[in-house]
Design a protein around this nucleic acid. Structure first.
Lengths: 114, 114
DNA sequence: ATGGGTGCATCACTGCCATAATACAGCCAT
DNA sequence: ATGGCTGTATTATGGCAGTGATGCACCCAT
């Protein structure tokens, strides 16, 4: 259930999503170039491109060829809703099952921080 | 973050672990044969064997060749401890981060069921 | 117009996963 | 001892995902 070694492009995808959700990049902002992010994260440019591709498919980032990739209008809000739904539908149920199965208490989960 | 399409042998591994944790199979019990479980789960016998192999490596399952595989002594307790540690160390932190990031409330998580 | 920045298409390599067809080795009830 | 159940080793194959190297197409500031 733990995914400590996920594919790089998925890790990058999460990093990008987190950056947008946290407001590091707002609607209309220019995102780091494929090569720049690749260098910073020690990954291959194509792998970064693959990560960006996920968001393009959802219309969350818009590409200006030869210029760069920009955060689409309302991307932050839409991304939050999408991720929220995905979390509640796909991620949380098995996690809750596991918590129940293992008899883990709320204190162990340190719910204060949540 | 959702892992809806994990390798089959890992899914089988979780199914087996859950069965042991839930007490469907207690210490000393005979587990389903490789072929039987394969047929029931619609998988290949070798893939099931690979799943069982994980538990053999940890000494949670003991093999009597020609007879079958049995739940080792204290397997349930040890498995619970191992899984618990793995959950708290590797699974929960990113989940908690995501909950925080997405601003998901305790009610949404339906904590009553946990 | 040209140089340097974009994204992206192509091809190729690698490794893992799953499956399959056998075949073998061990145990046990009959 | 024989048939039928166990797990397992072997070999091979197909598929697919991840990553990588290269080159091209595009745009813009200079």
């Amino acid at each position: 259930m733990a995914e400590e070694s996920k594919p790089v492009y998925l890790r990058l995808r999460e990093i990008i999503a987190a950056s947008i959700l946290d407001g590091n990049y707002s609607d209309g902002d220019l995102l780091p170039s494929v090569r720049a992010l690749a260098a910073r994260q020690g990954a291959n440019p194509l792998t970064v491109a693959k990560a960006y591709q996920c968001f393009q498919d959802d219309g969350l980032i818009v590409v200006k060829r030869g210029v760069g990739m920009f955060v689409a209008d309302g991307a932050s809000r839409r991304l939050r809703e999408t991720e929220r739904r995905r979390f509640l539908d796909s991620v949380w149920p098995p996690v809750a099952d596991q918590i129940k199965r293992l008899g883990i208490s709320a204190e162990d989960l340190d719910l204060q921080r949540v």
